[in-house]
């Protein structure tokens, strides 16, 4: 487990857990014989840090808990246990106005993340005045500045969300998050709902926010090609646990968890030479109600041995690397064969 470094980590997560008790009906309770655990484990002990000024990508498939983690970080759902620390200090369960301002969220669907009855201008004005970001007489100038920052024009101020296209709405949603001058942005699949040709503009915007404003961004995504383009580090999540974290180039070059390898090999490729034909992983991700014993990936893993089905591995630093560069939660992380996407490119196994 890496020690969260107070100097570099703006947001630290230590053993975050979130379980939901599934309501069982009277009938189910009556027929106790079935004896099923009625708990859904969305987060099963997450250790992660978001470093100051970086874009950290959080990837995983549906049910991996990546969105739940995002919501836990912004405080819209409370964790069952674990500590979230901000600038080294633990966050209280109920955040005050000032603390909630620091961590803002950008949602996936730009059609539901803007209030249809409030114009863009009054939305920004409300936020600016609420947190006293600027004096009242400068609200308009500041609003225009924010809009320009996200690539929108001044005349958007008087318009309502329904007058904009999806990509423009997402810009306005980002403007909403930026208005309160946050340090951290949690972006939950912010381009998944957009058309391909528009996605790039929003990705560009995130990149410039990180580089020019120095924002720390947790970018939740399922598209690895997008992640590779945008982030400095990548954390891979599987069934409520981080299974691998590394710097982006390192992770894609030298993945040290079989699940990460499966994810990378499953990416549909853009160039004709790199079409990957072989089957990489079998089966569907299991349900978070019913997490397999031992390593949670072992039932689908081609490298799994007996011990993998018994021991639940924790996230460990890869031997021989600098602490914090690359960690994996695979018992056999050191023994995995060399991984190369180049090999697949040539069509050889």
């Amino acid at each position: 487990m890496n020690q969260p470094d107070v100097d570099t980590a703006i947001l630290g997560m230590s053993d975050i857990r979130k379980t939901y008790r599934l309501s069982s009906s009277v009938l189910q309770r009556f027929m106790k014989g079935s004896g099923r655990r009625s708990e859904l484990t969305a987060l099963a002990g997450v250790d992660l840090e978001l470093r100051r000024g970086e874009t950290l990508a959080l990837v995983g498939e549906s049910g991996s808990g990546k969105s739940t983690l995002g919501k836990t970080l912004v405080g819209s759902i409370g964790a069952s246990s674990g500590i979230i620390s901000y600038n080294g200090a633990p966050m209280p369960a109920h955040r005050d106005k000032e603390l909630s301002r620091r961590i803002q969220m950008v949602f996936q669907d730009p059609y539901s993340s803007l209030n249809p009855r409030i114009s863009v201008g009054s939305m920004l004005k409300e936020l600016l005045l609420l947190h006293q970001i600027v004096p009242r007489d400068q609200v308009r100038d500041e609003s225009i500045r924010i809009l320009n920052r996200v690539g929108m024009d001044e005349d958007a101020l008087t318009a309502y969300p329904s007058q904009f296209s999806g990509g423009q709405r997402q810009r306005i949603a980002i403007a909403r998050a930026l208005a309160v001058r946050p340090d951290v942005l949690i972006a939950d699949e912010p381009v998944s709902a957009l058309d391909v040709s528009v996605q790039a503009t929003i990705l560009d915007l995130f990149e410039s926010l990180q580089k020019e404003l120095g924002l720390s961004i947790l970018f939740i995504a399922h598209n690895l090609a997008v992640v590779q383009h945008l982030s400095q580090r990548v954390a891979v999540m599987y069934l409520g646990r981080i299974v691998e974290v590394a710097e982006t180039a390192e992770l894609f070059k030298n993945p040290r968890h079989p699940y990460t390898r499966a994810l990378i090999a499953s990416i549909p490729r853009m160039s004709a030479e790199s079409v990957n034909q072989q089957f990489v992983v079998h089966g569907d991700p299991p349900s978070p109600i019913d997490i397999p014993p031992g390593c949670r990936f072992s039932p689908r893993c081609t490298f799994a041995q007996d011990q993998c089905r018994k021991v639940d591995p924790t996230l460990q630093n890869i031997a021989g690397t600098v602490v914090g560069l690359h960690s994996s939660a695979c018992l056999r992380a050191g023994e995995l064969p060399i991984f190369s996407t180049i090999l697949q490119r040539d069509g050889a196994q």
């Binding site: 790039a200 090609a225 383009h229 490729r269 853009m270 790199s274 996407t341």
Partner: peptide, 9 residues
């Protein structure tokens, strides 16, 4: 050119 290509990061 607007879509990210995994092979050309």
């Amino acid at each position: 050119t607007s879509a990210p290509d995994f092979d050309q990061p």
